[in-house]
Computed example of a mutant assay.
Amino acid sequence: MQKVMFLGAAPMQMPPIEYASEKGYEIITVDYKPDNPGHRLADRWYDCSTTDLDGVLEIAREEAIDGIVAYASDPAAPTAAYVGNAMGLPSNPYESVCTLAEKDKFRAFLHENGFNVPEAQSFTNISAAAEFAKSIRGNVFTKPVDSSGSKGVTRVTNQEQFKDAFEYAAGFSRSGRVIVESELVRDGYQVAGDGFVRDGRLAFRCWANEHFDYQCNGLVPIGESFPSILPDRLLNYAHAETQRLLELLDMRSGALNFDFIFTQDEELYFLEIGPRNGGNLIPQVIRYGTGVDLIAATVEAALGNDYELPANAPFKGYWASYIIHALTDGSYGQLNVSERMQSRIVEQDLWKQPGDPVKLFRGSNDTVGTMILRFQSAEEMCALMDDMNTDIFVECL
């Protein structure tokens, strides 16, 4: 029986753990939250931070694992590579994974290799950061370089906001590093989605339209709708540039999560290429729409097993993931869903009970629940996803 270690056992990280359980693999879970649901399916679980490189490696060696998975977690992805490299398990180069997982390293890599990149620098000193921000024309973003789930991100429109924005980002950064970068103006939807690398080649990718709720934040995705409505010529160009990036980093195998935009001049900007599966139920929606199971592929690739990954899997129908969220701080009362939206719900999972505290949605840690939806057309899909508060509303007490 093969033994697989999962870094993280949170609700969003359940799918590969459930898959491994169904396959009969021995399951080891690692994180510092004993109440996380993935631990209940584990043969053994360990109280250790998923970013503790040597701590996780020690556990992995004691357990003699056959594979390691960091699902939907940028902070844990370098740990999986570190352990995999040290133990000779299927993995990508540790330094390459760090380049993708840390925003300042990624921006520097893009600049050095001729990709489009915004003006950007990382700082630990707020005074130096503020001076750099002043040198940029227009708005800037402040972001922790090593967090995930869009936590700690602020769009800064005036200097009076900068101190609070910098400190807010630093609070989500393990290293205390904050990246300050110029705002980019996109044309059309930001593109999200997942892909899979096999033998150094982007063997599969499925891209979506990213949606935001400007009533509460406007910076954190509240869902992804599939398929992307951008023209094929732009998406094919993004595919070619992704392949160039993979070759430069010697990425050999595993899942990728994308966020990129095109400007009005059709210039491509990679915002993130995460060396892991996407959150927000992206792999599950892809499975509904294409039949391709990236969750299974992730686990089997980590174990060095064969897995099915068709070369061509056109998207069938119009699907979306949706992150249920609150527009204010308070206590959870109930979820109100319109009649027309009820008929479009394929899956629903609520994480809160009446009376539980909820917060204004500012990051994935503020999630109230999730949905998978199916629509009748691309037009309907985009129109409803862009105005979801009309049909789905969290009532707070």
Rank of each mutant, 00 (worst) to 15 (best):
L245T: 13
L245D: 10
L246R: 13
L246P: 07
L246G: 04
L246H: 09
E247I: 01
E247L: 04
E247G: 03
L248R: 13
L248H: 12
L248V: 10
L248I: 10
L248W: 10
L248Q: 10
L249V: 06
L249A: 07
L249T: 05
D250N: 00
D250Y: 02
M251H: 06
M251T: 07
M251K: 07
R252S: 12
R252Y: 11
S253Y: 11
S253Q: 15
S253L: 14
G254N: 01
G254P: 06
A255W: 08
A255E: 02
A255R: 01
A255L: 04
A255F: 09
L256K: 02
L256I: 05
L256P: 01
L256R: 03
L256M: 04
L256G: 01
N257S: 11
N257A: 03
N257L: 06
N257Y: 13
N257C: 13
N257Q: 09
F258P: 10
F258W: 11
D259G: 10
D259S: 08
D259F: 06
D259M: 06
D259I: 05
F260L: 05
F260E: 00
I261R: 13
I261Y: 11
I261W: 11
I261M: 14
I261P: 15
F262R: 07
F262Q: 04
F262M: 06
T263D: 05
T263L: 03
T263N: 06
T263I: 11
T263E: 08
T263S: 12
Q264S: 15
Q264D: 15
Q264T: 15
Q264L: 12
Q264N: 11
Q264P: 07
D265F: 11
D265R: 15
D265H: 13
E266Y: 07
E266T: 12
E266I: 08
E266C: 09
E266M: 10
E267M: 07
E267I: 06
E267W: 03
L268V: 00
L268K: 02
L268M: 00
Y269P: 13
Y269K: 02
Y269G: 10
Y269C: 09
Y269T: 08
Y269N: 07
F270E: 11
F270L: 11
F270W: 15
F270C: 14
F270Q: 12
F270K: 11
L271C: 09
L271H: 02
L271F: 12
L271W: 10
E272G: 04
E272L: 02
E272A: 06
E272W: 09
I273D: 00
I273M: 01
I273S: 04
I273Q: 04
I273A: 02
I273W: 11
G274Q: 03
G274F: 08
G274Y: 08
G274P: 08
G274C: 04
P275D: 15
P275S: 05
P275F: 15
P275Q: 04
R276F: 14
R276H: 12
R276M: 13
R276T: 10
N277G: 06
N277H: 01
N277S: 12
N277F: 00
N277A: 13
G278H: 07
G278C: 04
G278P: 09
G279L: 03
G279H: 06
G279E: 02
G279C: 04
